[in-house]
Nucleic acid binder design. Structure first.
Length: 161
DNA sequence: GCCAACGTTGGC
DNA sequence: GCCAACGTTGGC
């Protein structure tokens, strides 16, 4: 007899350029698929580690203001990113075959938007977040793990209510 | 628009 | 397997 242990909830931060897809777009759509990731580390997180129910900080990059703009939830685990198969798509990758997909995505559901974006500047000012991955100099990874402690601290900030 | 930091490619 | 060249990311 095997017993399954309820998996610990995990947390992530996912970057998006709001010109392309913003927290307001997700709020409108309610759910989305996270296509277009073409980095192996980020892919591995989606393909191998993300689970249904995981919490996601939705981060706005390359925009003023840069920072966390909302919360989403993983509702579907990693599956092949079909945009890699479409020659007309910006993210087309002929290396990725339907028989052997290279790129993966997950599905997300909107949870909430910040009343006010929690800016990168502000996150940097919080000592307990000093080692947060997204705050590391030179970090370009579009999906990074967030520790439960970091999640806790950030979700308690006044910008949410 | 600039450019530092990083990931990927490909010649050797 | 090394590493220079190149392309991209993303804060500023």
């Amino acid at each position: 007899m095997e017993y399954s242990v309820a998996p610990e909830k995990q947390y992530w931060l996912m970057k998006s350029e709001p010109n392309t897809y913003s927290i307001d777009d997700l709020k409108r759509d309610r759910t989305t698929y996270w296509s277009g990731v073409r980095n192996y580390q980020a892919r591995n997180f989606m393909r191998d580690q993300m689970r249904v129910g995981d919490g996601v900080f939705f981060y706005h990059s390359n925009v003023e203001p840069v920072g966390i703009a909302g919360i989403a939830e993983v509702i579907k685990t990693g599956y092949p990113d079909h945009t890699a198969w479409d020659p007309k798509n910006k993210y087309y990758d002929p290396q990725s075959l339907s028989s052997q997909p290279v790129w993966f995505m997950v599905d997300l559901r909107f949870k909430k938007a910040c009343r006010e974006v929690i800016t990168l500047k502000r996150l940097k000012e919080i000592p307990a977040l000093k080692s947060m991955m997204v705050l590391r100099k030179g970090n370009r990874l579009s999906i990074t793990p967030v520790t439960p402690e970091e999640w806790e601290i950030i979700t308690r900030l006044p910008e949410w209510s």
